[in-house]
Amino acid sequence: MHLKNDNSLFEYLVRLGDDRLILGHRLSEWCGHAPILEEDIALANIAQDCIGHATHFLNAASEVENKIKTADELTYFRDAIDYKNLLIMELPKGDFAFTIVRQFLVDSFTFLLYEKLQNSGNKFISDITTKALKEVQYHLRHSSQWVLRLGDGTELSHEKTQNALNILWLYTNEMFESDEIENSPSLKNFITKSSDLESEWENKVISHLQNATLKIPEMQTNYLSGGRRGIHTEHLGHLLSEMQIVARTYPGAKW
């Protein structure tokens, strides 16, 4: 019933997986270093969820490619150029404001996306997103609450949050770029084009940011993108060299 060897489906699943994997990795960097113990717990929990989703998506990708590579092989033995995550996921974690604003922008997107994808005609996609959506709902609640506190907290927290937003805003357009993979006929009944999510995302995100007394950055012409084509920031290579070091040093070993 699944389309075997369908490259678009494989590519699409890898994108979904890479987004979660790289975001989860960045979140996991907070473990032991968060501003309060409760956030050590929360961020580690969200990181686990993200990496869990990634595992499911990459396993599914492995299935549609007749298991040429396992999810672990896809994770540990691909170079940055073959990673297809959005650029926003790979940016260094920054300060707590940067992490929270990124999380809020991404959670809002992921929530809308999975909400649609749970009705996918592809069983992999519908199964994974149905389950993941419940967790993403919690993530969104968590990041939304923090955006309010940081944006409308003290002068200093407001400034840091506004700065983070100004930088991250440049990376938001990429979430809604529908390219030839998303437009592939074989994915027609399987996916929702991300461009279809843009206006709803914008409405929700902008109104929440305004509630947090934040200023929406002026529409930029210099939006950044490239991740879906493997054209990344320089940060991803370093992230991967750390993530992959043990697995690559002992190829073939089981862990």
Binding site: C31, G32, A47, G52, D72, T75, Y76
Partner: peptide
């Protein structure tokens, strides 16, 4: 105690190990 183990979360050699280690260090925080 979260620190020496947290030191390896980003380098854990498989997805399963990475999630398990994160869960473990999260428990320590708890």
């Amino acid at each position: 105690g979260m620190l020496p183990e947290g030191n390896w979360i980003t380098r854990a050699p498989s997805l399963r190990r990475k999630i398990a280690l994160l869960a473990k260090v999260q428990d320590e925080a708890g």
